[in-house]
Nucleic acid binder design. Structure first.
Lengths: 248, 248
DNA sequence: CACTATCCTTGATGCAGATCAAACGCGCGA
DNA sequence: TCGCGCGTTTGATCTGCATCAAGGATAGTG
């Protein structure tokens, strides 16, 4: 891991990269100005825990850049990832003081934080914020339910293919590319993190990735760099119907 | 199944049983009156499908009485339950036209429906509704994530114990009883539905229930009537920490 | 009353994925 | 340059749950 300080530029909301997708997406200029009065930025290094489950939270916020995971852990150490936080995703729950999950940065990460009390107060008065947060939460709920099908009913191979197709699709949207033909991207997760996401062991993840590679569904270089020659094929392997099951 | 018509009394919002927990919980009298202009009731029989995945939805609504399930199905027939709808739970997603899941009544059921367009329009103008829906959606998201841990990391025995403890706890809150010592309730689901919830086969569900009975964790009469002599013991079997992991 | 349909239980067997174990490759610091 | 640590791969073996198969209990029906 390169340890030089990531260049970090706190910025105005007006030219924020995640502005159109984050909680503040619907806010007008006045509302943004109000938000900025209790806004601050924080950076985290790859591997750093951002929030411990059970901790008191005094902020909520959005991921600006980087990737974080949301995980639950049982007493005996079994862990399950329950969410993957990408740029623009929201962290924290207005109206609740304790954190329900561990949040860990898997890459260097920048968060746009809002002090919790003022944010809650503003949310009560600003329908735009509550409305946007509702949309985002409904999307997350759909994603969680999609994931329940993966966890409950798919085979190890299908699970891996599902994860790859999600990452590929997300990466494509983020970079404004289409979802067809050849796709190339980097895995943002270790084998262990993938296992935690999929309810598998890291050995099984490794084996199934090797199998998909052997069968020509994917190619990979340097363990993390993936090429999908035929996305439809990957979708088939995931057990999804061809259109990706995306709803409007 | 007794086929006589369930007595059904459509009623005013003011004396509605689920009023304080449903989407309309925060509405004042004026808002309730407005809601009533595009409200109607529908009844369904046990086993009836309320909504087919992919169908166009022209209403949203709340379960008034009875129980329904939310399920996803893969092309080859594998199914996963992704939600259990109890009285006061919300059905449908404002802003989306197609249904994402099958909704099936597992008992006779009454729904309070709102025509979708007027509801969406009112929601845009009535912060109370969007705020309440946000709270409810956040709760569902937490439940879904809790369930991801169950699906991804728990053993069959733990899964069954988890399901039983959820039903027991929910039943206790519904009937204003405490969560300690002996608890008695009826299973609202068939073995097959439990299997679909837990990502198991119905045979495994049956075996594990028998095992829990044999080990004295539960007693049961007539296949569906459950007595839990010691709730803490059940929680242990579920692999949860003793307090039930409930957050404020 | 037998007849049928559901729902449930129990048994025998097989297999997908967990577990245990070893070793590889690469970047980094000494 | 060597060696160490981490992420990863691969192999051997074990096991929890699925699968296949049969039969029991209960309620509704002709």
């Amino acid at each position: 891991m390169v340890k030089e300080k990531t260049a970090f530029v706190p910025h105005d909301c007006v030219d924020c990269q995640i502005r159109h997708r984050a909680v503040c997406a619907k806010c007008d200029v006045t509302e943004l100005e109000q938000l900025e009065t209790f806004k601050y930025y924080r950076t985290y290094e790859a591997g750093q825990t951002i929030i411990w489950s059970g901790d008191r939270m005094d902020f909520v916020g959005s991921v600006v850049s980087g990737i974080a995971t949301l995980t639950q852990t049982m007493e005996d150490g079994r862990t399950q990832m329950v969410g993957l936080l990408l740029p623009s995703d929201f962290v924290g729950r207005p109206g609740r003081d304790g954190a329900a999950y561990d949040v860990v940065a898997t890459t260097d990460l920048v968060m746009c934080c809002f002090r919790k009390r003022p944010f809650e107060k503003m949310m009560a008065q600003t329908p735009h914020i509550a409305q946007r947060l509702l949309e985002m939460t409904l999307d997350e709920l759909d994603a969680a339910r999609e994931w329940m099908l993966v966890l409950g009913r798919k085979t190890a191979r299908e699970k891996i293919a599902s994860l790859l197709s999600i990452i590929a699709r997300r990466d494509a949207t983020l970079n404004l590319r289409g979802v067809d033909g050849e796709m190339v991207f980097d895995l943002p997760l270790t084998r262990e993190a993938m296992a935690d996401y999929l309810g598998l062991t890291l050995e099984t993840v490794s084996r199934q990735i090797s199998a998909l590679k052997r069968d020509g569904v994917i190619q990979l270089e340097a363990k993390r760099h993936v090429t999908v020659p035929d996305f439809a094929r990957l979708m088939e392997e995931a057990g999804d119907d061809s259109d990706g099951g995306m709803l409007v």
